[in-house]
C-alpha cells in the first residue's frame, strides 16, 4: 500500500476497512451476490486484526466490483451530491456569463446606462462576473469538502481493497 502512504493529508484512511473484509467474506460464501458496500462512516475503526482471517478470492472481476460499487447507496449519494451541485451551478454561471456577453451585442444602450460616477451597467456587470466566479468557487469547494470528500475517500479504499 505504498500508494496509501502518499495520501496522508487525510486522516480518514482506515475507515471502512473492516466493512470491506466483511463484504469480501460475504462474496466468498455467496459468489453470485453483489458485495454489500457499507458507507464508510458506518464502519467502526477496529484494528486490522481481522485482516488475515479473510483471504481474498484469487481472481476479482473488476467489472463486477465497479458495477456493484456504482449501484451502492454510498456511491449514489456521492454522485447525487456532485451532480446536484455542479449541474445547476454550471447552468447558472454559463447562463449569467452568456447573458452578460449577449447584452453587449443585443442591448448596448442598457449597458451604457450610468450608475455612479464613471461606473455604468457594463462595468458593474463585469465586476460582478469576477465576484460571482470567486463566490461559486468557494461554494463548490465547500460543497465538495462537506458533502463528498469523506465518503468518496472511504469508498475509494473500499473499492481498491475489493479489487486487490
Amino acid at each position: 500500500m505504498a500508494q496509501q502512504e502518499r495520501f496522508d493529508w487525510w486522516a480518514a484512511q482506515p475507515l471502512g476497512r473492516t466493512a470491506v473484509r466483511e463484504a469480501a467474506k460475504a462474496r466468498q460464501t455467496a459468489p453470485t451476490a453483489r458485495p454489500a458496500v457499507v458507507p464508510a462512516q458506518a464502519a467502526a475503526p477496529v484494528p486490522v486484526a481481522a485482516a488475515p482471517a479473510a483471504p481474498e478470492p484469487p481472481v476479482v472481476d473488476a467489472a463486477e466490483v465497479y458495477r456493484a460499487v456504482q449501484a451502492s447507496e454510498a456511491f449514489q449519494d456521492i454522485r447525487r451530491s456532485y451532480r446536484g451541485f455542479v449541474f445547476p451551478a454550471t447552468g447558472v454561471f454559463l447562463g449569467w456569463y452568456l447573458l452578460y456577453l449577449g447584452a453587449q451585442a443585443a442591448a448596448p444602450e442598457l449597458m451604457r446606462r450610468q450608475i455612479a460616477g464613471p461606473l455604468n451597467v457594463a462595468w458593474l456587470g463585469g465586476l460582478l462576473q469576477f465576484a460571482s466566479t470567486f463566490v461559486l468557487t468557494w461554494l463548490y469547494a465547500r460543497n465538495a469538502r462537506t458533502k463528498r470528500d469523506r465518503a468518496a475517500l472511504g469508498l475509494r479504499w473500499d473499492t481498491q481493497d475489493q479489487l486487490r
Binding site: V69, R148, A152, L153, T159
Partner: peptide, 8 residues
C-alpha cells in the same frame, strides 16, 4: 466510480 471516488 473511478472519476468520482479516485479508486485506482
Amino acid at each position: 466510480v473511478r472519476s468520482l471516488t479516485g479508486a485506482g
